[in-house]
Design a protein around this nucleic acid. Structure first.
Lengths: 339, 339
DNA sequence: CCGGAAGTTGCAAAGGATTACATTTGTTGC
DNA sequence: GCAACAAATGTAATCCTTTGCAACTTCCGG
């Protein structure tokens, strides 16, 4: 069931059928109609392998992500896919599972499929994988790399802006004892967030004392652990900003198990603004990071690369604070607001 | 940079290089080594389009799912991908977004890519899509279809067993006023769950009274709404089983907003056992549905189809109850257990 | 040292679409 | 009604691998 069968049925050449398939303008409307009828009647399905072999385009883009199970990524994938779909492009993704080896492997697999673009949304890279990319001229876009890599565009998040909003919000509520729950130091994205928090504190003039940073794992379990550590202190902080929502949820749980009430005893702020924030009790105040915006910038960056258009090499995304019920004036609801 | 370049560099023919690439046994070890060296030195990446065009195999399998954002699916995808990866097979998926049109479209796209197998994990099918599948001999496996389709294997979940466990658990705790929160009647999976609940009640001899079924939307918002409805009743049920976890989380939220305590005032059971169950307060008792098992059965069903092996046409998965903190003896913790 | 089997390798024909270029058909102005 | 040009269509080469078959080696027993 190939294009030849269709051509015969429609009484044209394969070239014409191909033109109809590719919506080429140089086909008479009547002819195109005949071809389309033949396609429908024969239930013809074009062979994508042949198409991309010949044309050099695969109409497929690849996403490299850390872990589909982190709700951040499905959101991103969904938006990316929907956008790509509007342009007739399919999407496939590879889970790196935070492993450099799986990253290299993923890059290889995507290149073998001849994808028309790769968005790298994970922060565990590998020299080998990057070199592989460089050897091709496949468009690539990175997310949140601490430094520009191989002259590829890099979409970054202005973490400092985000944390400054958070710290300001807490100060308004009268908090001065503000701590930070960081992610694993091996993750470059976690490290960047930690540094940004410190910078934000400095910018707000809150760095008189020793910076107050706990270390977590970006998972719920880690948050739970830190909650215990936190509340067994003689003089715990009155507010905690977490490097991501998962850990904030863990803190919430840990607090509840210890009988500590949130936000009365501790104001809590997460990062990412996953749907989880609204599912949890009390609903979590969080820094919203728009997946739609990331997806859209990534997609257009890749499209630009495809069409030899100039690539924007810097693109900054601003998080914004979404206030819910996990933050309150210091000292419980009886506390007063600070001007 | 094609196979010919490698062949020349290694001083062999393209056929030999191809054999090395495909791990064919009929190549002398020394030759294979020379070829591998050449491949590495040239940074050669085989062209998958050409490979699958010629061989008829794509080493790609497709997943059709409803919505990546429902945490049920990422789990499934992850397991499926990991399993497929061990067999050198890549995975791509299509979101149907619960739309029949997107389903048809998804099927078409997967067929165009020449996938070696399609797992249909969604329940909005379309005649058109199914017909497209039938026209090919691509292996297909379904999940939870109410009836066998086109002689394709169908993996089903024994919902009745699951709900019987749930009802038994509640009876042990002394509950007799047990209600059910159903999903949208348009979703066949929701309908099947509702029917199974009623069957389970019958099996437990709990069907003396009128069945007590609320209607939801399988989302958090729907659960929240039903909570309001529920607690404004004169004599509300003492236990509620939900068709999925998302709605149970919504009920939890709604209850909390109304100041109703769970499990004291209402025992709550969800379905699926998403990670959400542990993130939420109180942790949700839920019926665990193993994504790993589903993924594994689906994958092997497709593999079987690939190798012209006999296909198992029925495969049943048993959910099991995971008891957490959202269920308690009737009448609050002071209630007595019924023997 | 030969015949034949078994093991390696090469030759060349697919596989199904796209596309540059050639050719045919249609249109327009006069 | 015809030249000249534009539009539509066809021809055939090409994309890169895989693989059936043929050809060549190697190895062994006799």
């Amino acid at each position: 069931m190939d294009i030849l069968a269709v051509a015969r049925k429609a009484g044209v050449s394969t070239a014409t059928v191909s033109r109809v398939l590719n919506a080429s303008p140089k086909v008479r409307a009547a002819t195109a109609e005949r071809v389309r009828t033949a396609i429908a009647e024969l239930n013809y399905v074009p062979n994508n392998s042949a198409r991309s072999l010949r044309s050099g385009r695969s109409n497929l883009m690849g996403l490299l992500i850390s872990d589909v199970r982190n709700p951040f990524f499905p959101d991103l994938i969904e938006h990316f896919e929907s956008l790509a779909g509007q342009h007739g492009i399919d999407v496939t993704f590879v889970n790196t599972g935070y492993s450099e080896e799986r990253f290299s492997n993923g890059v290889r697999r995507l290149l073998e499929r001849g994808v028309d673009g790769i968005a790298i949304l994970t922060s565990e890279l590998s020299r080998e994988g990057i070199d592989r990319l460089r050897a091709t001229n496949t468009p690539v876009v990175f997310l949140n790399q601490p430094t520009v890599i191989g002259n590829y565009p890099n979409i970054t998040v202005d973490y400092v802006k985000g944390f400054r909003d958070a710290v300001d919000h807490l100060r308004m509520l009268g908090h001065s004892r503000i701590a930070f729950l960081s992610g694993p130091p091996t993750l470059s994205s976690a490290t960047r967030r930690r540094k940004a928090f410190l910078a934000a504190m400095r910018a707000c003039g809150m760095d008189k004392e020793e910076p107050w940073v706990f270390e977590g794992d970006h998972k719920i379990a880690g948050g739970r652990l830190v909650a215990q550590q936190l509340f067994s202190m003689a003089k715990p902080p009155t507010a905690l900003i977490c490097s991501n929502d998962m850990m904030a949820v863990g803190v919430l749980q840990g607090a509840s198990q210890l009988g500590v009430r949130i936000p009365d005893a501790l104001s809590l702020i997460g990062f990412d603004d996953l749907f989880l924030c609204e599912a949890v009790q009390p609903a979590l105040t969080s820094l919203h990071l728009s997946r739609q915006e990331i997806a859209s910038r990534a997609f257009y960056a890749l499209q630009a690369g495809r069409e030899d258009m100039p690539q924007a090499h810097a693109s900054v995304i601003l998080p914004h604070l979404v206030v819910r019920s996990s933050t309150a004036p210091v000292g419980g609801s009886k506390g007063k607001l600070k001007r």
